[in-house]
Simulated assay, not measured.
Amino acid sequence: MNITIPNIHHKDSNNFFLIAGPCVVEGRDICFEIAEKLITMTDKYKIPLVFKGSYRKANRTKVDSFTGIGDEKALKILEEVGKSFSIPTITDIHESHEAAMAAAYVDVLQIPAFLCRQTELLVAAAQTGKVVSVKKGQFLSGQSMQFAVEKIKAAGNNNVILTDRGNSFGYSDLVVDYRNIVEMKAFDVPVVMDCTHSLQQPNQASGVTGGKPALIETIAKAAIAVGADGLFMETHPNPAKALSDGANMIALDNLEAVLARLVRIREAIL
C-alpha cells in the first residue's frame, strides 16, 4: 500500500487493515472500552488497527439529533486513546478551518462522502501533512474519485485513502457496486470498504436513519474477495443505545468472530 500511517500495528502483516470505533465520541470511558477490545481482537489476528471516532456529527437528519460532547473535549479523548494504546486515530472534518484543529490530535483526517468534491476542504486536509481518507460520494462512480486524489496530491500530500460506502439507490436505500473498489485501486492508493454506512437506509420518514446490520459480514466478505485493502466498521457495546448510527453498527461482542472469518478469506486470495 502506498501510504504511511503512524504507529499502525503489525506493519509486516499481509492482512487487511481495520478502521473501527464508535460513530461519534460519546465519552472517554466508552471509547477506551471499545479501543481495548478492538486491540485485543486485532492483535490476535494481526490486523492493523486505526481507531475511529467523530468528534462532531455535522450531518444529522433532525435538528435535535446528538452531535457531540464538544469538539476539543472529543478530540482530546481521541488523542488520549491514540497515545494510551499506541494506535493511530481517525476523525472526520467538515470545513476547511477544522483541518488544522483536528490534525493536532489525530493521525488521519476523513473527508465525509457528501463533501468529497469540496476542493478547499481536500486541500486544507492535505496541507496538514496527515493521511487523508476520502469517502466516495454516494452519487459518484469509483472512476470519478481520481480527481479527489489529484487535488490532495497536487497540494503536496501523497498519503491518500479512498473509501467506498455504497451508492444511492432510490431515495431511501444504498447499494454496493464492487466495481468501484477495482476502479479506485487503479489510482495506486489503498481502498477501504465501509461495511456499516453502506448498509444505511437514509431519509426515513421518522427522521432516523435505518440500516441492515445483519449484512455487514456479507459486505465485508465480498470486499475482501475483490481486493479491498481495508475495512471500515463502526461498532458499539450496545448499538441500540448508540447516540449516532446505531441502526447500522456491528455489536462489539460480535466483531471478533466476523474478523476471524474475514482473515481466512484474505489468506485464501493471497
Rank of each mutant, 00 (worst) to 15 (best):
Lys185Cys: 10
Lys185Tyr: 10
Asp188Cys: 12
Val189Ile: 08
Val189Tyr: 01
Val189Phe: 06
Val189Asp: 01
Pro190Thr: 06
Pro190Gln: 06
Pro190Asp: 00
Val191Asp: 04
Val191Trp: 09
Val191Thr: 03
Val191Met: 06
Met193Lys: 00
Met193Leu: 13
Met193Ile: 02
Met193Ser: 11
Met193Tyr: 00
Asp194Trp: 09
Asp194Val: 08
Cys195Ala: 12
Thr196Lys: 03
Thr196Glu: 11
His197Met: 04
His197Asn: 11
His197Lys: 08
Ser198Glu: 08
Ser198Val: 03
Leu199Ala: 04
Leu199Gly: 11
Gln201Pro: 09
Gln201Ser: 14
Asn203Cys: 06
Asn203His: 13
Gln204Met: 15
Gln204Cys: 10
Ala205Trp: 06
Ala205Ile: 12
Ser206Ile: 08
Ser206His: 10
Gly207Asn: 03
Gly207Gln: 04
Gly207Leu: 04
Val208Pro: 02
Val208Trp: 08
Val208Lys: 14
Thr209Ala: 13
Gly210Ser: 12
Gly210Asn: 12
Gly211Gln: 11
Gly211Ile: 14
Gly211Asp: 12
Lys212Ala: 13
Pro213Thr: 07
Ala214Asp: 15
Leu215Tyr: 14
Leu215Arg: 12
Leu215Gly: 07
Ile216Asn: 04
Ile216Pro: 03
Glu217Trp: 04
Ile219Lys: 05
Ile219Val: 15
Ala220Ile: 00
Ala220Pro: 00
Ala222Tyr: 04
Ala222Cys: 05
Ala223Arg: 01
Ile224Met: 01
Ile224Arg: 03
Ala225His: 01
Ala225Phe: 01
Ala225Glu: 07
Ala225Cys: 15
Val226Asn: 03
Val226Arg: 07
Gly227Met: 09
Ala228Lys: 09
Ala228Ile: 05
Asp229Phe: 06
Asp229Gln: 08
Asp229His: 14
Asp229Met: 04
Asp229Lys: 05
Gly230Val: 00
Gly230Ser: 03
Gly230Leu: 05
Leu231Gly: 02
Leu231Lys: 02
Phe232Val: 02
Met233Val: 14
Glu234Tyr: 11
Thr235Met: 05
His236Glu: 05
Pro237Trp: 07
Pro237Asn: 08
Asn238Cys: 07
Pro239Cys: 00
Ala240Val: 09
Lys241Leu: 10
Ala242His: 07
Leu243Arg: 15
Leu243Gly: 01
Ser244Pro: 02
Ser244Lys: 09
Ala247Met: 14
Asn248Ser: 15
Asn248Phe: 14
Ile250Asp: 05
Ile250Val: 15
Ile250Ala: 15
Ile250Asn: 10
Ala251Asp: 14
Asp253Met: 03
Asp253Trp: 00
Asp253Leu: 00
Leu255Cys: 07
Leu255Asp: 07
Glu256Trp: 08
Glu256Cys: 05
Glu256Thr: 05
Val258Ser: 12
Leu259Ala: 07
Ala260Gly: 15
Ala260Pro: 04
Ala260Gln: 14
Arg261Leu: 02
Arg261Asn: 14
Leu262Tyr: 08
Val263Tyr: 02
Val263Asp: 06
Val263Trp: 05
